[in-house]
């Protein structure tokens, strides 16, 4: 193990312990790590956008020798208009860029939500109920009842009383089952990460001591 590798392990161990120190209470060491984390994350996005958007999608296609897309200066200028938001006197100019993004996203969303989500999901729900024996039929019934009752639970235009109330109540039970499943998965994911960090501290960090002393 080289000196640089040991230094890397100790830096990582310091930040791991600094974050874990929040379990005791909010303290200066945690704040130190937290603010560095926030800054590095913001800086990470600068690097990511610089390469994947500004260079690869804007600069390189505009300046390449073979079939240059010179007209890409238009979205470049529209994007630059966003920065007008920082100058109060002309901040309204940034709305032009924002409107372009919002309108475009809205246009894409209408099609993608209807064509890509609502219709396929409804198509997969509207299947024969009595098909594939007892197990298949039970699954089909659970699916149909679950979808309808969930939709009814999120329907707020009418008071949840009578048949609507009963259906919404069934919807709550289904939703609790789904949330429970997600809760289980989330706990497992987080515990898995925790085990990873504890393993790092025990194996790599404590292990590095034998190389130092």
């Amino acid at each position: 193990m080289t000196g640089i590798e040991i230094l890397q392990i100790w830096i990582a161990a310091f930040f791991t312990l600094a974050i874990f120190s929040f379990l005791y209470r909010d303290n200066a060491v945690y704040k130190f790590a937290e603010h560095i984390f926030a800054g590095l994350s913001a800086g990470y996005y600068v690097g990511l956008i610089w390469k994947s958007v500004i260079i690869q999608q804007l600069w390189e296609p505009m300046t390449r020798a073979d079939n240059p897309k010179w007209y890409l200066f238009i979205p470049g200028i529209i994007g630059a208009l966003m920065f007008a938001r920082l100058i109060p006197r002309i901040s309204w100019v940034s709305r032009l860029a924002l409107a372009f993004v919002m309108g475009n996203t809205a246009g894409v969303f209408i099609i993608s939500q209807l064509h890509g989500l609502i219709l396929p999901q409804m198509q997969d729900t509207m299947l024969p109920l009595l098909n594939g024996g007892f197990a298949g039929s039970l699954l089909a019934f659970i699916t149909v009842i679950g979808v309808i009752s969930t939709l009814v639970y999120f329907y707020f235009s009418k008071e949840h009383t009578g048949a609507l109330g009963v259906t919404a109540r069934v919807g709550v039970w289904f939703i609790m089952i789904s949330f429970g499943a997600h809760f289980g998965y989330t706990v497992m994911g987080r515990v898995s990460l925790l085990i990873g960090r504890v393993y790092f501290l025990y194996n790599d960090w404590i292990g590095s001591l034998s190389h130092i002393f």
Binding site: M102, G103, T105, A106, G107, F109, I110, Q113, L114, L117, I118, Q121, M122, D124, T125, L138, L139, I142, T143, V144, I145, G146, V147, I148, S149, T150, L151, F154, G171, F174, I175, I177, S178, A181, H182
Partner: peptide, 26 residues
């Protein structure tokens, strides 16, 4: 079964909401 049906219900509801919001923006 139960989990997927709820996910489907939420997806359909959220997609309808997103589509109607998109229409309002346009």
């Amino acid at each position: 079964g139960a989990n997927m049906s709820v996910q489907r219900g939420i997806i359909i509801g959220a997609a309808l909401g997103a589509a109607s919001m998109s229409l309002r923006i346009l």
